[in-house]
Design a protein around this nucleic acid. Structure first.
Lengths: 344, 344
DNA sequence: CAGAATATTGAAAGCGCTTTCAAGGCGCAA
DNA sequence: TTGCGCCTTGAAAGCGCTTTCAATATTCTG
C-alpha cells in the first residue's frame, strides 16, 4: 500500500550541498551559512558558492533541512472538502497570507468525519508541520487542546481558549438574526428555514438566530417551517419540496448557507414559484458565485477569505512566539435581488 | 521572512524511534522493521515494540524517514486556483485516488502565472515529492519535459509525449462541436460564443470546435459574435453586455465554461431576456452547481473528478515503475433546461 | 547428533543538512 | 615587535530514521 522507491534510473544524480561545497572549494558549513544568511561570509567565497550553485543547479533538500532545524516551514491545514466553495475561499486567504513567509500550506480534507480528521491531523504532525489550522470540523474541544500542546493551532468555527491555541468564530447567531430580521422588515411573517445539520455548531447558532429574531418580532416560530439538511444544493432542493408537499404556506426562505439556497431556489422554480416576486430567498455565506446567480442572492457575508488570512497570520505569529489575537469582522447582510417586500 | 524555530517551551519532548527501541528492549533496526513491515520479527519483540509505541505515543518522523528512504510518500499537485470549482473537483479526484496509497498530495497554486508556477514547482521539488501532477497551466512543454527528468510527471490539458511523463487531454474541440451542434440542431443560427482567453489552449480548441461546427452546418461564422473573456463570471456578464450593446442579434450563447455561462445568463436576465425562452445558453465543464442554477445549465461534461483520479493513479503507477496509460472519457453533452428549440 | 541452512537480530554507516566549537587569520594598539 | 580581540572558516556531531552486513539463534536434513 505504500509507494516503493523510484526506479534506479538514469535520472540526474542528486546534487547535495556537499557537492556544492566541494566545487566551490569551501566547507559545507560555509555553504549552509550562505544559504541561510546565518553568518557573514567573505565576498570571495560567497561568489564562488553562488557560482557553484548555479552551475550545478543545486536545490536544497527541504527534508534534510527540516530534520536538522527541527522546523519545516510548512503549516498543516485541515479543511473539510477540498472542493467546497466556502472553504476554498478560506484556503485562498491562507495561501495568500503565507505567500511571503516562505511557508507552504499542506492541505488535507477531513470530510466532516472524525475518523478522517484525526487520521489527517496525525499525518500532518508526522510530517512535522510548524503549526496547524483547523477549519471547523467535528473534533471535540479536548482533542484540539491536546493537539495544541504539540504545535501552535488556530481553529475556526468555535470558541475555545487554551494555551498555544487561538479560535476564530464568526457570529453565526447574529448573522442569522440579521437575515431573518431583513425578511421581517420586508413584511414577511411566514419565513421558512432551510437549516444545516443538527450536529454542526454553526447550524445550531443560525437556527437560534432565526428563531430569536422571529420571537423578538412577535412572530411565533413554527417548527414545521424548519427543515434540516446537509448544507448542499440537493438538500436545499429536497427541503423545499418537502415544505411544499406539506402544504405549509410561507412567503420567504432563509437558507443556512448559499448552497442550500441555490437548491431551494431551483425547487421553487420548478414549482413555478417566482423569486423574489412570490417568495423571497436569503442565503448565508455570500459565496463569490452568489452575486452571479439569477436572481443575485441576498446573503449574509461570511468573510471566508479574510478568515483564512487572519488564521494564517495569527498562526505565523504564534509560531514566532508572539502572543496574537485576531478577530473576524462582524456579520454583514448583502442585499440583492432575491428578497423584496411582501406583496399584499 | 522565514519562520523561526518554535519557542523553547514545555512542549512534550519528541519521542523518537530510538526511545521506543530502548523501552522495548530491542534495537532501532527492529523497530524500523516492524514499522515498515520490511522483515519478519519474532512475535515477542513485535508485541513489546507495539506496546512501547502505544505507551510513548510514538509518531514516526516523516522527514527522517524521507531522508533515509529517498522517498517521501507525497506527490506535488500544481493547480491554478485553489478555489476554482473546476479544479476543485480534480483535486477531489486526486485526493480520493491517493487515499489508500499512503501518499499525500501537496497542493500549490500557480494562478496561471508562469513565474508562480515555476516557483511553486521548485518548492515542491525541494520537498522531494515522489511525483508531480500539473493541472494545465502555462508552463512551456520543454520545461515540463525537463521536470519529468527529475520526477514522474502527469500533466493535464495538453498533448505531450516524453519519458517519465504522461499527458491527459480532454477533447475540447469535440466538446465544443457537440455543444454548438446541439444549438444548431435546435434551429439556432446566430450563436454567440463567450470564449476563453486567447492564450489558453483549451479556449482555442473550443473556439475551433464552435467555428467548425458552424461551417459544417453551412453557417458563416461571425467574428462579431465571439467575445473573449477570462473564464470567470464577471467576464461572461461583460461579454454579453458588450454583444447587446453592439446590437448584434443572436438567439443562443455557447460559453466556453460554465462560470462565464453564469455571468452571461445574469447579463441576459438583467436585460429582461429570458433563458431559454428568448435565448438558449450552453456551457462547458458541467460543474456540480450547474445542475442547480436556474434554469439548470446545458453543458459539456468535463470529467474533472475522473481526470484527477486518473492522473493520480497513473502517477502512482509511474512511481512504481509501471508503464501506464490512462485515458479521459469522451466529451458528453448534458442537456438541461437552458437550451431549447428556436422559436420561429 | 553433526552440520548446514535459515530465521532473527543488532551495530553501524549513511541520508543531506545545521550548528557548535575551536582554530586560524587579520588588524590594531602599545 | 608583541599581544589582544574580532572575523571568518572548517571539523565534527547530530537531527531521526533505514538498510546493509555480519553475528547469533533456530530449525532442518541426513
Amino acid at each position: 500500500m505504500t509507494i516503493p522507491r523510484p526506479l534506479p534510473s538514469e535520472l540526474p544524480e542528486n546534487i547535495t550541498l556537499e557537492m556544492v561545497a566541494r566545487t566551490a572549494g569551501v566547507s559545507p558549513a560555509t555553504v549552509s551559512r550562505i544559504l541561510n544568511r546565518s553568518a557573514r561570509v567573505s565576498e570571495r567565497k560567497r561568489a564562488a558558492v553562488e557560482a557553484a550553485i548555479k552551475a550545478l543547479n543545486y536545490r536544497p533538500n527541504a527534508l534534510a533541512r527540516g530534520l536538522a532545524q527541527g522546523r519545516t516551514n510548512s503549516i498543516g491545514v485541515l479543511t473539510q472538502d477540498i472542493a467546497s466553495p466556502f472553504y476554498g475561499e478560506a484556503l485562498r486567504g491562507i495561501e495568500n497570507a503565507l505567500k511571503d513567509t516562505g511557508a507552504i500550506p499542506l492541505i488535507v480534507s477531513g470530510h466532516w468525519l472524525l475518523r478522517d480528521e484525526v487520521e489527517r491531523l496525525e499525518h500532518l504532525l508526522s510530517r512535522r508541520v510548524d503549526g496547524l489550522i483547523v477549519l471547523t470540523g467535528s473534533l471535540p474541544d479536548e482533542m484540539l487542546l491536546r493537539y495544541a500542546t504539540e504545535v501552535p493551532l488556530v481553529v475556526t468555527g468555535r470558541d475555545l481558549e487554551g494555551p498555544n491555541l487561538m479560535s476564530l468564530r464568526f457570529d453565526d447567531y447574529l448573522g442569522a438574526r440579521m437575515a431573518t430580521q431583513h425578511l421581517i422588515d420586508l413584511g414577511h411573517q411566514r419565513i421558512a428555514h432551510v437549516a444545516g445539520p443538527l450536529d454542526h455548531f454553526d447550524s445550531i447558532e443560525r437556527l437560534r438566530g432565526y428563531r430569536e429574531a422571529l420571537v423578538d418580532a412577535g412572530i411565533e416560530p413554527d417548527d414545521d417551517l424548519v427543515v434540516h439538511t446537509d448544507f448542499h444544493e440537493p438538500g436545499g432542493l429536497l427541503a423545499i419540496n418537502q415544505l411544499i408537499a406539506a402544504r405549509k404556506p410561507f412567503t420567504a426562505v432563509f437558507a443556512a448557507n448559499d448552497q442550500s439556497a441555490f437548491g431551494a431556489r431551483l425547487a421553487l422554480h420548478s414549482h413555478g414559484i417566482r423569486v423574489p416576486e412570490d417568495i423571497s430567498v436569503v442565503g448565508f455565506d455570500d459565496l463569490p458565485v452568489s452575486n452571479y446567480v439569477v436572481p443575485p442572492l441576498t446573503s449574509v457575508k461570511q468573510p471566508a477569505y479574510e478568515m483564512g488570512e487572519i488564521a494564517a497570520r495569527a498562526l505565523v505569529g504564534m509560531i514566532h512566539g508572539e502572543p496574537v489575537k485576531g478577530h473576524l469582522p462582524q456579520p454583514e447582510l448583502i442585499v440583492r435581488a432575491s428578497s423584496r417586500p411582501l406583496r399584499r
